[in-house]
Each structure stands twice: as structure tokens, then as C-alpha cells.
């Protein structure tokens, strides 16, 4: 018996709802110590840095919701990171899988690794549905970060993962070396959620760059130094953050988002006729702007300008054309 389209749709909706209800368990179980969480103050107990890095700036890139691990970054994301490394040789550019409180790749999970490996394989062989399942799983983790009940737990977990990643790469806590978190798509929410906790651990200034980030009016925004939200005019995905989270509506001037915006902690950066992903996306190296640069080149220039504290508008299409 072949189920009709309506039944299939119903099955999909039920699966989506179930995966939503199950989404917080990884973070909650981790917090409760069910998966071996060590209760410790990372800032004090993490192993001392063997070889302190000479990098003047540390950057952590948080991938979009399409990933299953930090090693499965899309081709365009790899190009972005390569270009950033070329442009800023003094900076240490790191990658992190943000949709797990323990920075554990889906393909490295205890019980479901086989499932995510299969999903990734199918996705790479261009089966759109497999990509949908991965996106769905990660979207719910973004919602866990944005949720007032689970956010404090999830965000502390990702902040600890970030701190440990930094430490592994020679970052010395309390050294004051600045950090930049680049959150692409759902990674934007993870970045603003984790930043206040990360700041507590490392005691250094943190800048966040949201690249088409889907973000809520996170209570932690009050503790953030600077947030640059890069948005393309054709990027409808990042607009979801505005639509879904009432705290971002102008109707609520005292929300965390609107207060941070009012106080100048959030800067909205218009990237021009850019889309969220794929062709015409922030990382498209083929599509050209009126000034002759590719969309990717503009994105790289903008991120570099922010990190090097130069004029952002000079990196943008309208600032040069």
C-alpha cells in the first residue's frame, strides 16, 4: 500500500513534532551528568596551555544547520575559511560544530552515528530529503538555544566547548586576546547564546558576526560587546528570526534585542542583493556585485574589516561603487 501525499505530509509533521519534543534531551542529559559531564570550572581546571599561541586574534566559525560535524562543511564554507586565513595570517581561525552541547559530531554519536552517516551520504548524493532531516534536527537545536528553559543549559554547554577548543589551540584564558564568533544561519543564535558564558570563562572581549543569522532576542545580548548582523536583501531565511521571535519586533522596545540595538551593541550590515545560501548566497564566488567583486569577496572583506576594527562600510558594495 502506497501512502498518499496527505498521509506522507501528516507523517512528516508528526516526525517533525516528535523530533522537536526530543530535541532538548541531549543538552538536558548532559547537564544532569547522564552522559558523563564533569562538573568543574573550566577556567580553573582545564589543562594548562602547553604551547601558547602567538595569534593576535581567535575566530570560531559556527557552521549552518546543514552540517552533521565540523568536518562536513560545505565547499563554500571551506572557501570562506581559506580566504579568511589568507587575509588574516595573524588570526587563528577555528571551526566548531555548534548543534551539540558537547561539540560532538552527529556522526560520532554513541547510538545514532550510523543514521547520520547514512543521512550525510545520501545528502552528498543529492537526495534532498536527507538534507531536510539534517536541517530539521539542527533547527530544533537552535530552538533549544533560544528557549528560556533550555537556553541556560545548552548555551553553557556550547560555551564550554568553545573554551576547550580555544584552549586546545593555544589560547590562554584571561590573556585578553580578542575572540570573534562567526555564526552562519542557525550558528548566529548559538553564538549570541554562548557568548556571555564564554566571556565569563575566558575574560576577554567577544565580537559576534552573524552571517544571515537566525537569532532570538536572547537575554544574554545585554552582556555582549558587539554584534554585527550581516544580512542580504534576498535572504528570507534570516528574516525568520525576526518573524518567529517577538522580542525582535519594534513593538517591544524594552526587549533585550531592541535595547542592545538602541545602545549600539548591535549593528545591522546590509550586504546588498545577497541570498542566504547556495547560488547568490553570502559565499557565492561566481556572482558579482556592481563593484566587480564576488559575493564571497565582499563577505570576506566585511568580516576582515570587523575583526581588524576598520571601517565596515568601505568593505560593502555601496561603499565602493
Amino acid at each position: 500500500m502506497i501512502p498518499d501525499a496527505l498521509s506522507l505530509l501528516l507523517i512528516l509533521i508528526i516526525a517533525f513534532l516528535f523530533s522537536g519534543a526530543l530535541a532538548p534531551f541531549e543538552a538536558l542529559g548532559w547537564w544532569a551528568g547522564w552522559f558523563g559531564r564533569q562538573k568543574e570550572d573550566i577556567a580553573k581546571t582545564a589543562e594548562p596551555v602547553q604551547k601558547p599561541s602567538q595569534a593576535k586574534h581567535f575566530v570560531i566559525f559556527l557552521t549552518g544547520i546543514h552540517s552533521v560535524s565540523e568536518a562536513s562543511f560545505a565547499r563554500r564554507e571551506i572557501a570562506l575559511l581559506e580566504q579568511l586565513r589568507k587575509r588574516m595570517p595573524d588570526a587563528m581561525i577555528l571551526e566548531l560544530f555548534p548543534y551539540s552541547v558537547t561539540n560532538q559530531a552527529l556522526t560520532g554519536q554513541r547510538f545514532f552515528a550510523w543514521f547520520w552517516r547514512l543521512a550525510l551520504k545520501l545528502k552528498l548524493s543529492r537526495l534532498a530529503f536527507a538534507g531536510f532531516i539534517i536541517n530539521m534536527r539542527n533547527i530544533w537545536q537552535v530552538a533549544v538555544s533560544a528557549d528560556r528553559r533550555y537556553g541556560p543549559i545548552y548555551n553553557q554547554g556550547t560555551a564550554e566547548s568553545m573554551a576547550l577548543t580555544l584552549r586546545r589551540h593555544g589560547y590562554t584564558f584571561h590573556s585578553g586576546t580578542p575572540i570573534t564568533l562567526i555564526g552562519y544561519s542557525g550558528g548566529g543564535q548559538i553564538a549570541i547564546g554562548a557568548a556571555p558564558y564564554l566571556k565569563e570563562i575566558i575574560q576577554a572581549p567577544i565580537t559576534i558576526i552573524s552571517m544571515g543569522g537566525i537569532m532570538c532576542s536572547d537575554p544574554g545580548l545585554g552582556a555582549i560587546d558587539r554584534l554585527y548582523h550581516l544580512y542580504g536583501r534576498r535572504d528570507r531565511v534570516q528574516r525568520l528570526g525576526f518573524l518567529l521571535f517577538p522580542g525582535r519586533w519594534p513593538l517591544l522596545p524594552y526587549s533585550a534585542w531592541n535595547q542592545a540595538l538602541h545602545d549600539g551593541h548591535i549593528q545591522l550590515v546590509d550586504m546588498g542583493p545577497v541570498d542566504h545560501t547556495g547560488k547568490d548566497g553570502y559565499l557565492d564566488s561566481q556572482q558579482k556585485l556592481p563593484d566587480g567583486r564576488s559575493y564571497l569577496e565582499q563577505t570576506v572583506a566585511t568580516i576582515t574589516a570587523i575583526i581588524e576594527e576598520k571601517s565596515v562600510s568601505s568593505a560593502l558594495w555601496f561603499g565602493r561603487s
Binding site: P152, I153, N155, P196, E200, D218, S255, A256
Partner: peptide, 12 residues
């Protein structure tokens, strides 16, 4: 409670 797990829980 979820609320007092965080120092960063102000208005959202």
C-alpha cells in the same frame, strides 16, 4: 529551576 541556572536571564 531553569531560571536560576543562569546569570544572564533578564528580559528576552
Amino acid at each position: 529551576s531553569p531560571k536560576n541556572l543562569s546569570k544572564h536571564q533578564g528580559r528576552s
